[in-house]
């Protein structure tokens, strides 16, 4: 489903090159929930963004659903991402001038989408945000913002959800709720890759991958 094949990523900085990923090979099967864990600077986010078609590796390949996504053109990759991958970030990244339902509907702005208002409302109901539908992100709590981001990621029912520290800014109660939604998505057959320091998601994980200095390490 998702395969990294000897993927390396080097960042060029003014202080010299930083090797974020070093010939990482990893295979994640369809329907798996995999946790990527490791200390800060170990390359977790780089791995996640590379797997999501957002960050081209310096070397190696990333294969998603049998497609070498970095062999695609930028435009093809963007469409592929829109149709197959949902993202959840630690900082939510909601669009500040759109209300909650419009934020959830953001993915429908790409290509011809069969999803619309009805689906967005359904997700907002399911995530207990129906009453907040017409509120702006600035009027929501952190937990509500992250639930909105989850609804946005799941609106088009992508095959893969990539979550980068989804509970990093949340209290334990909200963290459990968010993890619960990701687990629910996984149990319905979705593939979930979560970068997290927290342990709450461990009980739902099929696998935990440890990263250290850009390498896959043993726990």
């Amino acid at each position: 489903m998702v395969r990294l094949d000897k993927a390396s990523k080097t960042y060029r900085t003014k202080h010299g090159d930083v090797q974020a990923l070093d010939r990482v090979s990893l295979q994640i099967q369809k329907g798996e929930l995999v946790i990527i864990r490791g200390p800060s600077g170990s390359g977790k986010t780089t791995l996640l963004l590379s797997a999501g078609g957002m960050l081209r590796p310096t070397e190696g390949h990333v294969i998603v659903n049998n497609n070498d996504i970095y062999a695609m053109s930028k435009r093809e990759r963007a469409i592929f991402r829109a149709e197959n991958i949902g993202f959840v970030f630690q900082l939510f990244h909601l669009v500040p001038y759109l209300n909650i339902i419009d934020n959830v509907l953001m993915p429908t702005g790409v290509g011809r989408s069969r999803f619309g208002q009805k689906d967005a409302k359904e997700w907002l109901n399911r995530l207990n945000l129906a009453e907040r539908m017409h509120h702006r992100p600035s009027e929501l709590s952190a937990g509500e913002k992250q639930r909105t981001a989850i609804a946005r990621a799941m609106l088009k029912r992508p095959q893969i959800i990539l979550a980068d520290e989804p509970t990093g800014n949340l209290d334990p109660e909200n963290s459990d709720e968010i993890i619960g939604y990701l687990a629910e998505y996984h149990s319905s057959g979705g593939t979930v890759i979560v970068v997290t320091h927290g342990k709450a998601v461990d009980q739902y994980a099929d696998r935990i991958v440890y990263l250290k200095k850009g390498h896959i390490d043993k726990p």
């Binding site: 991402r81 149709e83 953001m106 946005r152």
Partner: peptide, 16 residues
């Protein structure tokens, strides 16, 4: 910047 970033993540192309 971040809005553009999330739009890219959602699949918005350069033209859009």
């Amino acid at each position: 910047r971040q809005e553009i970033g999330i739009m890219r993540a959602l699949g918005y192309g350069s033209g859009k």
